[in-house]
Amino acid sequence: MNLKKIYKYGSPPNFYRFAMKLEPWCLSLGLFLIAIGSIGGLFVAPKDYQMGDAFRIIYFHVPSAYLSMSAYAAMGIASIIGIVWRSNVAFAVAKSIAPFGALMTAVALITGMLWGKPMWGTAWVWDARLTSEFILLLLYFGYITLHATIKEQKKADRAASLLAILGIINLPIIHYSVVWWNTLHQASTISKLDSPSIVGEMLWPLLLMIIGYMIFFIGVICRGGSAEVLMREKRSNWVKEV
C-alpha cells in the first residue's frame, strides 16, 4: 500500500474537490432510484398473501434500517482511521455521518412501529431486535452529544470516536439478534443472497430502494463532510479559493 498516495488523496483540499464533484451525481442518481423503487413498491409490486397492502411498508422500513447500520459501520471505520492515522478528514466525515445515521435509525424505528401496530398487534416490544436497534439510536445520540459538549476539537474527536468504535460491537448483535434469540421480529429476508425469501416482482423495488438510499447517503456525506472540513480548515490558504 502506498501510504503517500493515500495521504495525498486524504488531504483536505483533495477531499473537498472530490466530494463536491461527486455530490450532484450521487444525489440525482440516488433520488432517481428511490423514485423508481417507491413507485415499484407502492404501485407495481403485488399484495402479500398474508399482509395485503400493509406489506408495502417494507420498501421504506428495510432501506432505512439497512442504512442505519451501514452508516454506523462507516462512522466506526472513519473513526478508526481518524484515530490511527490522525486524519482530520476522517474525523470530519465521521462527524457528518452521525446526524444522518441517527435520523435513519429513527425512521427505521418509526416505520417499524407503523408496520408492527396493524400486523403484530403492537407498535413496540422490548425483544432483542428492537432493543438493539434502539441502542443504536442511543449510540448516535451519545456521539453527537460528546461532540456538542466537548469544546476542544481534538478531545471531542477522540472521545466521540472511541464511543463510535466501541459501538461497532452492537452491529452484529442487531443483525444476528433474530437468529440468536427468540424475537417477535422476523428473520432477514434478503441477507441470504442465494435464495431470498421474497419473489422477484416484490424484490426489485426493494433492492432499488436500498441502493438508492446508499447512493443518496454518499451524496449527503459528500456535502456534510465538506462543510465540516471547511470549518476545520478555515484558516488554511486553499479554503480562500472556494
Binding site: 444525489l27 428511490i34 417507491s38 407502492l42 395485503g52 397492502d53 400493509a54 408495502r56 411498508i57 421504506f60 422500513h61 432501506p63 432505512s64 457528518s96 446526524p99 444522518f100 435520523l103 435513519m104 429513527a106 425512521v107 418509526i110 416505520t111 407503523l114 408496520w115 401496530k117 396493524p118 443518496f216 451524496g219 449527503v220 456525506i221 456535502r223 456534510g224 465538506s226 462543510a227 465540516e228 471547511l230 470549518m231 478555515k234
Partner: peptide, 30 residues
C-alpha cells in the same frame, strides 16, 4: 392500512429531505 403505509412513506421522505438540507445548510454556513 392507508394510514400506516402512507405515514411511513411520508416519514421516510421527510427524513431524506431533512438530512440533505441539514448538510446543505452546514455547508452554506461554513
Amino acid at each position: 392500512y392507508n394510514f400506516y403505509v402512507w405515514s411511513s412513506v411520508f416519514v421516510s421522505m421527510l427524513a431524506l429531505f431533512l438530512t440533505y438540507f441539514d448538510a446543505k445548510k452546514k455547508h452554506k454556513d461554513a
